[in-house]
Amino acid sequence: MSKDFRQLWTDLGVNLELHDQLMANTAKLHERTHLSQKNRPRSMEYFDHSLHASHAERVAEIKEYRDQGGKSIGTFCIYVPDEIAYAADVLPIPLCGGSGWSVNYADKMFPRDICPLVRSTFGMALSGT
């Protein structure tokens, strides 16, 4: 499935080898936690897939929007008024990281004793994932 997006990731300067690790780690964790639950609503399928999509299909959508001249902003925290961004045709994209995989890659620039959310996000940036 992820093969279709390798060109996109290459174009964006993603480190493919590390990104594969991140994706495999994320998928495995999701399988162990969410997918192992019994009696789940079938409609959760879209939300399950969003885990992959937020690295792939959604990235492709945003890239296409930007390639056509559209603007987007990365946001942190829930204080950014989304409605104002949308009204100016600017896509707000929250960047808060939730992956444990990337946390230690933040060590290059950040102290260890700060928020794991910040370390996760910048770990992805610094590892090219």
Binding site: T33, G98, G100, L117, S120
Partner: peptide
């Protein structure tokens, strides 16, 4: 605090 996508450890 928030649990952004990828982190659901304590919930799980």
């Amino acid at each position: 605090t928030p649990s952004p996508l990828g982190n659901a450890k304590v919930h799980y």
